[in-house]
C-alpha cells in the first residue's frame, strides 16, 4: 500500500482522535455527573480576625488546625511546621508597650508572590481565591518560601507516618514538598467553615469567614466598614485575611 502525505495525515489524525475519544472522553464525562461541586469565581473567600477578642493565652485556632490538617509537631523549632501561628507584637521604640497576640496564617493573596515564582505551577490560585499547593506536583525547590512576605510556608523536612488519631479526611504532610494553610479547602467545598474559625467561634472569639462577593456576609460588612486592615498592604499582594483592632 502506498500512502501519500494527505492520506498519511488523515490516518494519523483519525488515530489521534480515536485515542483521545476512547480514553479522555469517558473520563471527562464522568466528571460532570451529578452532585458535583466546583470552585466558583462568584465566591471569593475571605477571613476577618478581630484581635481585640483574642485572649492572651488562647490557642484554640492553632490546636484546631493541627488536629484538622494532621500538621505534625517537630521537636526542632526551626524545622517545625506552622500552618497558623500565634504572633506576639508590640509597638516599636516605645517603653512599656503593651504586648498583644494575633493568629497569622497564609493570607491567600489576590496576587500571590508564591504562585508567581513557582516554576511548575504547583502553587496556584483557585477560582474562588484560595491559594493552594498541589503536593503531587511540587518539586520542593523552596522558591516560594523565599518569596512569601508572611512566612506562611513550611517545608516538610521529615517523613510523617500514619498514626491512630489522625484525621482520615485529610492526607498527611508530604515529605520533601512545601506546604501551607489551605483555608481548610476540604471543609469549604462541603459548605463548612475552616477549622480555626469554627474553633474560635466556639470560644466566642473574633474570627469570621465568608464570601467577599456577598454583600450580606459578615466579612464583607466588616471590610466595608473600613475598620479592617491587612498586613503589609504596601506590597500590593492584597491579602484575603483582614484584621480588626491592630
Amino acid at each position: 500500500m502506498s500512502l501519500d502525505r494527505r492520506d498519511f495525515l488523515k490516518i494519523g489524525g483519525a488515530m489521534a482522535c480515536g485515542t483521545a475519544l476512547t480514553t479522555a472522553v469517558p473520563i471527562v464525562s464522568a466528571m460532570t455527573e451529578a452532585n458535583e461541586t466546583r470552585a466558583d469565581a462568584g465566591n471569593q473567600w475571605a477571613m476577618v480576625v478581630d484581635i481585640n477578642k483574642c485572649p492572651p493565652d488562647c490557642t484554640a485556632c492553632y490546636d484546631a488546625c493541627r488536629k484538622e490538617n494532621n500538621v505534625p509537631h517537630f521537636a526542632e523549632p526551626a524545622l517545625d511546621i506552622h500552618w497558623i501561628r500565634k504572633v506576639t507584637f508590640k509597638q516599636k521604640g516605645v517603653p512599656g508597650a503593651e504586648e498583644r497576640n494575633m493568629p497569622v496564617m497564609c493570607f491567600h493573596c489576590e496576587h500571590p508572590p508564591c504562585a508567581h515564582v513557582c516554576p511548575v505551577a504547583a502553587t496556584f490560585k483557585r477560582k474562588d481565591g484560595i491559594v493552594l499547593v498541589d503536593k503531587h506536583r511540587c518539586i520542593g525547590c523552596r522558591y516560594c518560601m523565599s518569596a512569601c512576605p508572611y512566612k506562611a510556608r513550611s517545608f516538610v523536612s521529615k517523613h510523617v507516618e500514619h498514626e491512630p488519631g489522625q484525621n482520615p479526611d485529610v492526607p498527611l504532610r508530604m515529605h520533601g514538598v512545601v506546604e501551607k494553610c489551605e483555608l481548610c479547602v476540604h471543609r469549604v467545598d462541603k459548605g463548612l467553615e475552616p477549622a480555626c474559625v469554627e474553633a474560635c467561634k466556639a470560644q466566642g472569639g473574633g474570627m469570621a469567614f465568608g464570601n467577599l462577593n456577598d454583600p450580606q456576609s459578615e466579612v464583607s460588612k466588616i471590610v466595608r466598614s473600613g475598620k479592617a486592615t491587612r498586613l503589609r498592604a504596601d506590597l500590593g499582594t492584597n491579602p484575603r485575611v483582614f484584621y480588626v483592632g491592630i
Binding site: 466528571m31 496556584f124 483557585r126 493552594l132 498541589d134 503531587h136
Partner: peptide, 11 residues
C-alpha cells in the same frame, strides 16, 4: 485528583 485539587470538583 487534578480536578479535585485544582478546580475543587469533588466527585
Amino acid at each position: 485528583r487534578e480536578d479535585a485539587v485544582r478546580e475543587g470538583v469533588r466527585v
